[in-house]
Design a protein around this nucleic acid. Structure first.
Lengths: 191, 191, 191, 191
DNA sequence: GATGAATGAGGGTTCATTCAT
DNA sequence: GATGAATGAACCCTCATTCAT
């Protein structure tokens, strides 16, 4: 409807601009213009720029969660589930490079520190699914017995690095390559 | 002395403030104050804020390179050299968390994109040592035959993630843990 | 109204301040204050200070042109038309001393050099009317056969000097005096 | 000697830079550099920038006065003396365009207003020679009976305008042209 | 005397936010 | 609700001037 419509346009414009130009390079007036909306209108949906930035983060997070849950089969073996997650994540980011770049900026900004706490500690959100998987793997002695934080790093660290290089054009990730990277990541965490 | 003195104070203040508060949160006036220096003084050493930011990046880069080269033995086996590099890097970042956070911000900013190209492609700087090692490992069939970019991701991606979590207080990296992480990273790249 | 309103106030404030105090002595903040406007508002109407300065010049130029064209009769004899122009110009400047002083500053600044080229060479603007008159006078052998630039100097040089002295209070130009000056200028160019 | 030497270099550098770039474009540091002198050194000879600017004006004024007095014959007829003055002035400015441009800037700045008062009213300086000549001409009924200020305007107004256009490249003043301009100026003031 | 590094007030400009329409 | 003109605090940077060497 009307309301959601404008809000959406704002969110999309903000995503694109911030991803491409950083927080610096994306003033509210520019976001408004790109969204085809009055500058004041943004403040009807977001209390201020910070709120917009944080909200935008949450929306991206949710989309990623949804992407992973679509087709996720909790009853399948650990390795297959790991395969699913890594593959979906890489494909998602490749198809939504702005989301990826936005997250990169977000996590390395003062905003990110606080939010990250939840990613690690909370029992909800998309994060839970990862943790559950890894914990299960540990208890089944399929995955190395390392702190959760370390397993996260081993599982997702390479993914993140490789996706960035893909987006920057230093490598092209086709299905075969994704497979190999997933395999190598698995080598990192598996017993 | 005189010259280096002020310049150094500026660099240190900028590093600390930007690491902690982001580019946003570190106006030139604040950097000057923290450095105990007049605002105009900064411009005697750096053409503008961008130049300061890029210079600061270079200095950090050099310090890291120096840290790695101290004690690096090119004649030792691949695995040992890998061990050295990963261990030194982790320790360096743990001891210099501001450097780590600064780099995080830098790489995820418009500044970083350009610089990163060199990291990947150039044949000089500290990067060369990494690449040489990995290439050697590939040709000796000790390391997986994957694109350089992917090997970088597998080698350093986990490191980066885990160091961040250490700095944020989500985990404490002692020597034993560093060893285990290094081991797991090696599992990721080794054949 | 709304738009013209603020813009106009800015232009008037800038004119007054720059005329009186020079470019130096008229910072944007002062112009804004005198205009009763926020500092940022100026930038809604002018890209930067230079643009304001040049625009202001153009507006003055147009007003002068309009003043001359009102009552200008192209069919009248050369001398009468010359009389009209000189008289109107002197009266205009006497009534608008800020305009005069602004022009003086403008022409003797780096801005002026470029603009002056057009004044001499172009075929449009108020300048055209002067040139046409003088060329006609030359071809009718009423006016000395000298380069256009020289005729301009002879026609308007004294006017400019005398108006400045009037504004500075060294002389008072009443109608009789204006008439005499016009007459003497005519002696300078007439055959 | 040493002292005059440095002072002179400063004055020359200031003249050149201000003439070419305006007061804006000639910071003290730039003047110092162009003069081959330390920035602080300027303040040994001039109290501040304003003092330098005014002093520089005076020096130019003196040079012009000297140029006129060289070869000036008070016993010659009015017209010949007028011829001498106008010719020398034009030649001087053509040979010293920086002096001319400097004066243009000076007179149209806040500095100029005060100084100009003396030019008109005082009984000393080079100005006196002009006035004496014109007054003599009036009393001999060779020159129009107009206020001194007006005669100045008629005598020097065209000169100034024409020299500027020469310097800007809109006309080239050779000896013949100088003669004609002088002649026309004379027509303006003579009875 | 001479220097030029250091200073910091002040200048031009941007931009998040508000509010009258 | 929506707009976008208006605001002014805050930013980056310059530059006249000082003063320790």
């Amino acid at each position: 409807m009307a309301k959601s419509d404008k809000r959406d346009k704002v969110v999309r414009a903000a995503l694109e601009l911030i991803a491409e130009r950083g927080y610096h390079g994306a003033p509210m007036a520019m976001i408004a213009e790109q969204a085809g909306v009055g500058a004041g209108t943004i403040y009807r949906y977001f209390e201020n720029k910070d709120a917009l930035i944080i909200d935008l983060y949450r929306e991206i997070d949710e989309r990623i969660y949804a992407a992973i849950m679509a087709g996720y089969a909790p009853e399948k073996p650990i390795r297959e589930r790991f395969h699913h997650i890594i593959t979906v994540l890489m494909r998602y980011f490749i198809e939504h490079p702005s989301d990826f770049r936005y997250l990169g900026q977000f996590h390395n900004s003062p905003y990110g520190a606080e939010v990250r706490r939840n990613i690690i500690l909370s029992n909800n959100g998309d994060n839970y699914i990862y943790r559950q998987l890894l914990e299960e793997g540990v208890s089944q002695q399929v995955i190395k017995d390392l702190p959760m934080v370390v397993l996260f790093a081993l599982a997702f660290g390479p993914l993140k690095a490789v996706v960035r290089d893909h987006i920057l054009g230093f490598i092209t990730l086709d299905d075969a390559m994704i497979e190999q990277i997933m395999e190598a990541s698995w080598d990192g965490i598996r017993r």
